[in-house]
Deep mutational scan, measured.
Amino acid sequence: TTVHIGNVTYHFDNPEEAVKWAKEMAEKLGLRIEIHGDTIRVE
């Protein structure tokens, strides 16, 4: 599972961890997340 924040990509072996981490980052940055299969974007 990959999480994209701007130009930076993070890789997670556990999809649930990826979603949890992306949600925390989105809250901190005042952004929202979009999930497309195994790709998560924070925008």
Rank of each mutant, 00 (worst) to 15 (best):
Thr1Pro: 05
Thr2Asp: 06
Thr2His: 11
Thr2Ile: 11
Thr2Arg: 09
Thr2Met: 09
Thr2Tyr: 11
Val3Ser: 00
Val3Gly: 01
Val3Tyr: 01
Val3Thr: 01
Val3Asp: 00
Val3Phe: 02
Val3Met: 01
Val3Glu: 00
Val3Cys: 04
Val3Lys: 00
Val3Ile: 04
Val3Gln: 00
Val3Leu: 03
His4Glu: 09
His4Asp: 04
Ile5His: 04
Ile5Val: 09
Ile5Asp: 01
Ile5Gln: 02
Ile5Cys: 07
Ile5Pro: 00
Gly6Asp: 08
Gly6Lys: 07
Gly6Glu: 08
Gly6Phe: 13
Asn7His: 12
Asn7Pro: 07
Asn7Glu: 09
Asn7Thr: 10
Asn7Arg: 12
Asn7Lys: 13
Asn7Met: 11
Asn7Cys: 15
Val8Trp: 14
Val8Lys: 15
Val8Met: 14
Val8Ile: 13
Thr9Trp: 08
Thr9Glu: 10
Thr9Cys: 11
Thr9Phe: 09
Thr9His: 08
Thr9Asn: 06
Tyr10Gln: 04
Tyr10Gly: 01
Tyr10Trp: 07
Tyr10Cys: 05
His11Leu: 09
His11Lys: 11
His11Trp: 14
His11Gly: 04
Phe12Met: 02
Phe12Leu: 01
Phe12Val: 01
Phe12Glu: 00
Asp13His: 09
Asp13Glu: 12
Asp13Leu: 11
Asp13Phe: 08
Asp13Thr: 13
Asn14Ile: 08
Asn14Arg: 07
Asn14Met: 06
Asn14Thr: 10
Pro15Asp: 06
Pro15Tyr: 15
Pro15Gln: 14
Pro15Phe: 15
Glu16Lys: 10
Glu16Ile: 12
Glu16Phe: 11
Glu17Val: 10
Glu17Tyr: 09
Glu17Asn: 07
Glu17Gln: 10
Ala18His: 00
Ala18Ile: 02
Val19Ser: 05
Val19Pro: 00
Val19Thr: 07
Val19Cys: 05
Val19Gly: 04
Val19Phe: 15
Lys20Leu: 11
Lys20Ala: 13
Trp21Glu: 00
Trp21Val: 02
Trp21Met: 03
Trp21His: 02
Trp21Pro: 00
Ala22Cys: 04
Ala22Gln: 00
Ala22Tyr: 01
Ala22Pro: 00
Ala22Lys: 00
Lys23His: 09
Lys23Gly: 06
Lys23Gln: 13
Glu24Ser: 12
Glu24Lys: 13
Glu24Gly: 08
Glu24Val: 11
Met25Cys: 06
Met25Asp: 00
Met25Tyr: 08
Ala26Lys: 02
Ala26Val: 03
Glu27Gly: 06
Glu27Trp: 06
Glu27Pro: 02
Glu27Ile: 08
Glu27Arg: 09
Lys28Pro: 04
Lys28Gln: 11
Lys28Thr: 08
Lys28Trp: 11
Lys28Arg: 13
Leu29Cys: 06
Leu29Ala: 07
Leu29Ile: 05
Gly30Met: 06
Gly30Ile: 03
Gly30Ser: 05
Gly30Cys: 09
Gly30Leu: 05
Gly30His: 09
Gly30Asp: 07
Gly30Val: 03
Gly30Lys: 04
Leu31Ile: 05
Arg32Ser: 15
Arg32Leu: 13
Arg32His: 15
Arg32Ala: 14
Arg32Trp: 10
Ile33Asp: 02
Ile33Tyr: 12
Ile33His: 03
Ile33Val: 14
Ile33Ser: 02
Glu34Ala: 11
Glu34Val: 15
Glu34Gln: 10
Ile35Trp: 09
Ile35Leu: 06
Ile35Glu: 04
His36Cys: 08
His36Lys: 12
His36Asn: 12
His36Ala: 10
Gly37Leu: 04
Gly37Trp: 03
Gly37Asn: 05
Gly37Ala: 05
Gly37Ile: 03
Gly37Glu: 06
Gly37Asp: 05
Gly37Val: 03
Gly37Gln: 05
Asp38Leu: 07
Asp38His: 12
Asp38Tyr: 04
Asp38Thr: 13
Thr39Cys: 13
Thr39Val: 14
Thr39Tyr: 08
Thr39Lys: 06
Thr39Asp: 07
Thr39Ala: 07
Thr39Gly: 05
Ile40His: 01
Ile40Met: 02
Ile40Gly: 01
Ile40Thr: 02
Ile40Glu: 01
Ile40Gln: 01
Ile40Trp: 01
Ile40Leu: 03
Arg41Val: 14
Arg41Cys: 10
Arg41Trp: 15
Arg41Gly: 03
Arg41Asp: 04
Val42Gly: 03
Val42Phe: 07
Val42Tyr: 02
Val42Leu: 15
Val42Ala: 04
Val42Asn: 01
Val42Lys: 01
Glu43Gln: 13
Glu43Phe: 15
